[in-house]
Nucleic acid binder design. Sequence first.
DNA 1: CGATATCCTAGGAAACCGGTAGGGATTTGT
DNA 2: ACAAATCCCTACCGGTTTCCTAGGATATCG
Lengths: 153, 153
Amino acid sequence: MKFSQRTEYALRALLELGRRAGEADGEPAPVPNREIAAAQRIPERFCEQILADLRRAGFISSQRGACGGVRLVRDPATLTVSEVVDVAEGPVVTQACLDPFDDAARAQAHSAIQELWLDVQITIRDRLASVTLADLIKRQDELDRTSYLVFQI
Amino acid sequence: MKFSQRTEYALRALLELGRRAGEADGEPAPVPNREIAAAQRIPERFCEQILADLRRAGFISSQRGACGGVRLVRDPATLTVSEVVDVAEGPVVTQACLDPFDDAARAQAHSAIQELWLDVQITIRDRLASVTLADLIKRQDELDRTSYLVFQI
DNA sequence: CGATATCCTAGGAAACCGGTAGGGATTTGT
DNA sequence: ACAAATCCCTACCGGTTTCCTAGGATATCG
């Protein structure tokens, strides 16, 4: 019962993109995969694939060729962690899919246990949907400033 | 991101045991693995292993030999689903374990993303800890009575 | 043209999962 | 004493998933 490394990487990549977009004014320059991977310590070719998924999902756009890279398309304030999880590792599902031809399994469909799984599933999704990329960026900046201060003391 | 079949089986087995214990008065007779597996449609040898885990965890006790079987030891009202999940598939952990020798990973330890994972983890555990075996038994009885009525109409 | 990028597809090692299997140990009933 | 029933321990196995690497095609800029 855990989230995949792939999701962690996807969030880190988007976090990195979001922070850079915040710094630059106007149309931000595309950030190449290489830089994102290095900054967030993600295996380069693996990061490439994850970025491709994020592009297909419409979260980022890409530009090929020299001086190319990826750009954040979605507004960080409306891009939720839940959406990223769905793209990176598939939707959160706590119960096995029910075989529609297995009567025994269908009989279990309305069991107390199944109800609990569904409840937990909704709880997780709601929690993940309540956090946006903008929230993460803001919180990360706070953390960074705090540790900076700590070192200053 | 889902719970294992093993956990589902563990809960079903305990549910079955709990219901039988509720019917009989006084010291209940031990229920053999075979009956539990048949009633809950769990592969017999697989169920055997799961029951062994539940015994090692102290949730049930077992009696060997003819007329043997397993008995519920813990009070269903205090046995939480969270405990069963921990035994059947290990604790719910939403973040990868941090390698204490990997400085780069440790630097991520206080990241916004890690904080989110921890938050979700606690949310799930709390939810699972708030449901007891007695709750499941009660709810399942309600469901069974309801479907009985449906067929009567 | 050549360097820098993304894009697409294909693997591959390792872990995990669901389940099976063999055989030993213990208890009960006859 | 013996057979049947039952739990107990360990190993294994086929399939899937996960994390990651690799090769090469394609596009863009200077």
